[in-house]
Nucleic acid binder design. Structure first.
Lengths: 249, 249
DNA sequence: TGCACAAAAAATGAATGCAAAATAGCCGTC
DNA sequence: GACGGCTATTTTGCATTCATTTTTTGTGCA
């Protein structure tokens, strides 16, 4: 009864055009780099089911390249933690258990916590104003119960804080881990519980407040706790996935 | 007058035997994985000068393999940030400027800060006792002015804290960034200023104290500041490299 | 002697080829 | 009808080969 994990067969859909260059080493020039970007997006967007094997042959045909650059890209993706390479048995999309997700969220929490601390040292008034702007925008989405808009504004706020930390190394690492989580988010289709919304909004108020006062240590704490709460909501959601869509009797 | 950066020519010394499996994906089985481990150690240990190109040909002969697995390993090392790949111009050992080092130290500070916080949630009394043991050992080295021993004990303490966080993802990321810094440490031959020693010892006392009390938030702050001070010492040392060896008049 | 240009040499990037391992298919046996 | 062993096909891992690009070297000229 393990038909939930397809052993083979990747839904062959041509990958989307190269999105953004989120990664540190932008090697769009070489074919290998191009492939890497496209494959990463392809996997992050959840086009391959969890634990399914990534057939080199099909991907090569799909991308119109030979196996060499593809395999190089696979090695990199494995190093990034998106897929795993079994000896002589090919690549599989890495399957994240609950424990893995908890770990990932905690590392994200640590990175954002660090970002907040560093941002307090370097952020400009203009940047704070911009974040406030996003905050009000997000509040509007909250009032209108527009989850998608809320989600996007929320993400942009966190990215802005990371950007304000003025640390490219941090930014890269953050993007990497965010990708791993996004992979899950795409497939699991996270839905935030309404109750959590109000809490999150309050936490964001506190974040802004600490940021305005440049209270690095304090902001660090708040951000960590904020992400911890996010983590709890996400895990809870995974454990009982259907909240608003009860099973038919 | 750019003879300081050798454009070519890698000192050909056979790499040390495979050390430890510090990395997440342990693929010792495959040839590629073996090569990856050996090459990473080879680069981290500083066998190739900063900014020098990494000649595939020579490395292939040295390792007795063909270019395919080597190139795969290079791609991974590039993704890890140890080397950089210039299009059509091969791989170079990544050169870390002062800004890069500052960023790296800050990220390490963030990760250790996180590790401390998490450790407070999960650490056992036995683990704390073990860390205290290391602490006293380190203190002994400090009294005897044994910098090497001090350094090693210090490193083991920090690794113990990371291990106590019980987060493999964090541990992997930590090892990765530690490698990048170690690369510099090997070549630059960091020497800690004596004055800094006393400070560091006091900070370590505070770390232990917070750890005993499981004061996560507090420990997080202390660890961050501790690493920040380390950073300052390291950068200062880089700026005026010779402290104990003044130039002859 | 110094510089510019060009051709040779070498190195890189990607494709193809080949051996070994794994998976699937098939048949025989229980 | 199900299970187990054997063979065929597929797939993976690595080596080799080919086409470009870069780097070096050599030569001619000012």
């Amino acid at each position: 009864m393990k038909s939930t994990i397809p052993e083979t067969g990747v839904p062959i859909t041509p990958p989307t055009g190269n999105g953004g260059d989120r990664q540190e080493n932008r090697q769009e020039a070489s074919l290998h780099g191009e492939i890497l970007l496209r494959l990463r997006d392809y996997v992050v967007e959840g086009n391959i089911p969890e634990g399914a094997r990534v057939p080199e042959r099909q991907l090569c045909e799909m991308l119109g390249i030979s196996r060499t650059p593809l395999r190089e890209a696979l090695k990199v993706l494995a190093a990034e933690g998106l897929i795993e390479l079994l000896p002589n048995r090919g690549a599989r999309v890495r399957q994240l258990g609950q424990r893995d997700l908890e770990e990932l969220f905690d590392v994200m929490a640590g990175l954002e916590s660090l970002a907040g601390r560093l941002a307090c040292e370097a952020i400009t008034d203009a940047e704070i104003t911009a974040i406030e702007q996003l905050h009000y925008e997000m509040y509007g989405h909250y009032l209108h119960r527009d989850m998608h808009g809320y989600f996007q504004a929320n993400q942009r706020i966190h990215e802005s804080i990371v950007a304000s930390a003025r640390n490219e190394t941090l930014k890269t690492a953050y993007a990497n881990f965010a990708g791993r989580i996004r992979r899950v988010r795409y497939s699991a289709n996270f839905a935030r519980k309404r109750q959590r919304w109000a809490e999150a909004m309050r936490e964001h108020e506190a974040i802004l407040d600490a940021l305005r006062r440049r209270a690095g240590s304090e902001l660090s704490d708040i951000l960590f706790q904020h992400l911890r709460n996010k983590r709890a909501a996400a895990i809870e959601h995974l454990t009982e996935p259907q909240e608003s869509v009860p099973a038919s009797p």
